[in-house]
Design a binder for these strands. Sequence first.
DNA 1: CGGTTCCTTGACACAGGTCAATGATTGTGG
DNA 2: CCACAATCATTGACCTGTGTCAAGGAACCG
Lengths: 236, 236
Amino acid sequence: MRKEGEGYCGLCGLRRICFPGRVAAGGSSSPRQLRIRRARVARGTALYRIGERIESFYMVRSGCIKEIDVATGGPDAIVNFCVPGELLIVQGARGARSQTTSIAVEASYICAVPWRIFHQVCAAAPEIAGEFIELVTKAGASTRELLAMIRGKGALERVAGFLLNLRARLQLRAPGQREFRLGMSRDDIAGYLGLRSETVSRSFSELARRELVVVRAKRVQILDPQELRRVYTGQE
Amino acid sequence: MRKEGEGYCGLCGLRRICFPGRVAAGGSSSPRQLRIRRARVARGTALYRIGERIESFYMVRSGCIKEIDVATGGPDAIVNFCVPGELLIVQGARGARSQTTSIAVEASYICAVPWRIFHQVCAAAPEIAGEFIELVTKAGASTRELLAMIRGKGALERVAGFLLNLRARLQLRAPGQREFRLGMSRDDIAGYLGLRSETVSRSFSELARRELVVVRAKRVQILDPQELRRVYTGQE
DNA sequence: CGGTTCCTTGACACAGGTCAATGATTGTGG
DNA sequence: CCACAATCATTGACCTGTGTCAAGGAACCG
């Protein structure tokens, strides 16, 4: 992780869906006061590892970061993929030790806000704290969603759910985009969904055969979202 | 749910592992000030349903309550079994709408603390709030544990993990107890673990054949916890 | 352009879902 | 308190889906 100095949220295309960006845009506190640090994380390297003290919270600016529950689930138990505009899982409101390891699945840029600075901003603007608590409880809901996506579902349903979920999140940043890019490998997707990479591959092929999606390497296009949703819910 | 008046934590055997109980025992605030309400929940009836406003937080006093993620996972997607001494999943610090439905799997007694009262106590004793945030973040961890227990694991491993987890939690209340009771049906266990009740049954039988457990109806005895743990982790 | 990694596809075996029948346990009313 | 009914648990047979092993092909990187 290499420091890149401080940035100005006013120029950032993610401002509207980014929590630090909204803070910066929202009132008295300028981006400079927030002291957002930007950094590059090379493909395959860790932003932080399990057990490390977390002094900041992080947002993904570009690329994709995977969060791994190494302790309870082993080295390929991926709990979340974070795409641009999203916060990494928050595990406390100041320097707590991380319970996950976060690794870039492709070259990524992140923004970091030190807790110390954040608490200063909160003191000046109390409504920020409430908004932040919202975000944290939503993070808990995302784990429940993943649970629902894999428990009692077949491989095709899981992969359909994964694609729909990822598309919805990427479309927050780029609405109306027909095609999107999978930053992560088939092995990563398999680890996330509790499958094998071969099964993920076969599921992609099957969905393509049914003309619901087009998959070429890492590029994915969803042709029929409604039908894909019916596959996900098992009403095919 | 039938009101049973207010109770006195001083007489309660769960005081040491119960959060309201610790609050009551811990200092200036007496049980009476906490205004803990006790209530009976009959087998199969709901403590609250999805979408209802939650004005209190709840602890299980006896019996067992299942929490169901009806919205994302369907009617048998059980997210948690709450046993005596445990808090039901907390979904906000004051009257938020519930995202789960909570149903008693056997006749149960619960204690309820209204948020309004709790916030008054917090104002008088700030360390209580910090302890409570701990509890809430741990609740998030329990979903991650369940995820780890089912993702990429076979039926025997899941059932072994379930028994070990439940035993550990019940032993907080009754240490050294060799035998414990499963309040929930095989169908409930299956819904929790993402299996079918027949498979749960077969797994119990297989674990019994290996002389790791004794299962007779709802009574379970764990003969060899170490070996059971090795089954769970897949090192058999 | 060559080497490495990643992806796709096939063949096969086995775990677990499904359907069905029997047996045990619990609860209820006479 | 017993008997009956209803629910719940267990077991078997069968079949589908996914993991496993293996090989070939495509994409990516230096």
